[in-house]
Amino acid sequence: MEKIKHYFKTFLLFELLKGLALTGRYMFARKITVQFPEEKTPQSNRFRGLHAQRRYANGEERCIGCKLCEAVCPALAIKIEVAERDDGTRRTTQYDIDLTKCIFCGFCEESCPVDAIVETRIFEYHGEKKGDLYYTKPMLLAVGDKYEAQIAKDRAADAKYR
């Protein structure tokens, strides 16, 4: 009896019709597409996007050239050169991030003792040449200067979990 029922179900394409009914129902379901440039999905304050270098409130750059980020970077995307500045402090002369290598793991941010290198919420950046995605120190500082308010807010929101 069970077998006969099974045969009938097979030949009447019962399961196929069930599948068709499901997709047919979803055809009229409310669409969940986000219309990207106009609408955006909410972002976490831990979002890991474009990198930035931060400064202290007095305008002094935070980075002390400890090279922890360079050491921890799994994709070897960071290159740092360090020299002593005239006032005797240790500063970077070169701080490059190759965004075509970067995997946005956030390890650089985690390893930084002075919160100098951070990842921002920006993800809609582009380059027309491959070289455009090779970010140097002035570029990173510029990103940091421009979005400092947002960066600081995100750090503050996440502070109690760190």
Partner: peptide, 10 residues
């Protein structure tokens, strides 16, 4: 369009 609608896209 149709396949999009069935996958709840537009």
């Amino acid at each position: 369009k149709v396949i999009g609608w069935m996958q709840i896209r537009i």
